[in-house]
């Protein structure tokens, strides 16, 4: 099963490689990993999307918790959470009809065009992983020049929070 695990880690050199090294050394899956500093500059927030049997997921959570740099961990999948990913897509946009079509499609997905040239559009889109997949499918493969995806971030709904 797919799990979304959020971590607060010490904002120190090496913390990221300890975590990614754990996944490769123990053969765990890693679908995406995002990380950035939080409002507290000594802490980084990380979101990892992984998958595996219940036993593997339990091991992943325990092994992550065991790392000295991991301050706090939460398996979001156990609760009610919001997940979002951001994507930039550069697409071919040549000629009146193609430009209009891309614009129309982007409106449907509530995507924003953030850069324009005579032959391309750069589009920004936020949503669940499935929504981003759907946009790419709708855009047709041969129109796509470049795709940049951030990997998912997650946050719990309601008052509960992953803080110190």
């Amino acid at each position: 099963m797919r799990h979304i695990v959020s971590l607060l880690v010490e904002n120190e050199a090496g913390a990221l490689s300890r975590i990614s090294g754990l996944f490769s050394a123990r053969g765990y899956n890693i679908e995406s990993l995002t990380v950035a500093e939080t409002e507290d500059s000594t802490l980084s927030r990380m979101t990892i999307i992984t998958s595996g049997s219940d036993r593997i997921i339990e091991q992943i959570n325990k092994q992550l918790n065991k790392l000295v740099d991991v301050v706090k961990l939460q398996d979001m999948t156990e609760g009610n959470f919001i997940e979002r990913e951001m994507m930039f897509v550069k697409v071919k946009a040549e000629g009146e009809s193609q430009r209009a079509e891309v614009k129309r499609l982007s409106d449907i997905f509530r995507a924003r065009i953030i850069d324009v040239t005579d032959t391309t559009f750069c589009i920004e889109l936020t949503g669940s992983g499935e929504k981003l997949d759907a946009y790419i499918r709708a855009m047709h493969e041969n129109n796509i020049v470049e795709v940049v995806r951030s990997g998912s971030m997650g946050i719990l709904r309601g008052e509960k929070a992953l803080t110190l």
């Binding site: 050199a13 090496g14 490689s17 300890r18 090294g21 050394a25 000295v68």
Partner: peptide
């Protein structure tokens, strides 16, 4: 040294 020893230490420091 920190990188090489990372998988076989409880923790390490530079």
């Amino acid at each position: 040294a920190v990188g090489i020893s990372r998988p076989c230490v409880k923790h390490n420091f530079l």
